[in-house]
Amino acid sequence: MKTFAALRAIPTLLKIGFSEAVAYRAEMLVWVFATTMPLIMMMLWTTVAEASPVVGQGGKQWGSGAFVAYFLSVFIVRQLISAWAAWEINFEVRQGMLSMRLLRPMHPVLSFAMSNLAYMPMRAVVTLPVFAILLVTELSRMTAQWQVWLLWPLALIGGWLITFFANVAIGSLSFFIDSSIKIMDVWLAAFFVFSGYLFPLELFPEWLRIAAQWLPFRYQIGLPVELMTGQLTVEAALPLLARQYTWAGLMVVASLLLWRSGIKRFQAFGG
């Protein structure tokens, strides 16, 4: 009965979140513009590749065009998998505002998830021009296999799940320690290096590439991007998707456990 009630509340939650996204659209645009890193890396790598193409570990030749396609895809994927619950949770725990959420008859993590997800339509609209540029200029470098395009949304959902629940896990740490946002900084630093955000993982030395295979980060950005840019066939992508969802599952379990043991320590009366 309780789950049913929570499920029924989801459309309303999404609607509230969406109106919030519309109300704070200017703020959201600033967040989007702050995603400058892929574009800077695009300029860097195209300059580097100008003299001669960069050769990856797999023997693929990365020319300027390949980098443009890769980093525009990174930009799009980054917008669609983003979550910021760690900052929200940290803020609400410190300010005592979490009490309000606890009063509602549903799991607070669900309400965080819906408010994050509700921004997606707006974010998707923002990525449309980038998508258009990508298709006009680098169409030949995008995958032509429709089966891969079917897997792409799955990979995006998996990536978002990892991002969101990692956020919840790190946000829940603020029940225990003061500086959980600093831990988020460390997580982000590792994310930048190992996700394929700064460079295609193919350009990594072999041993770092193996490390990246086992870490969660490449399943947030690298996998969806590699699908889009035709670096993966369906057969190659399926085992990677399996790993992605394993990570997503681990993150769900870990974050909910952390949340549950943390919430017992929460006692904000009067803020």
Binding site: W45, V48, V54, V55, A189, L198, F199, L203
Partner: peptide, 24 residues
């Protein structure tokens, strides 16, 4: 220390191999 490492890693990738041209 961690941020420093991540600031330096991309350079190692750009200049990773002898054959890579690097930043002009």
């Amino acid at each position: 220390l961690f941020w420093t490492a991540t600031a330096v890693v991309p350079l190692f990738v750009v200049y990773g191999e002898e054959t890579r041209p690097g930043i002009p």
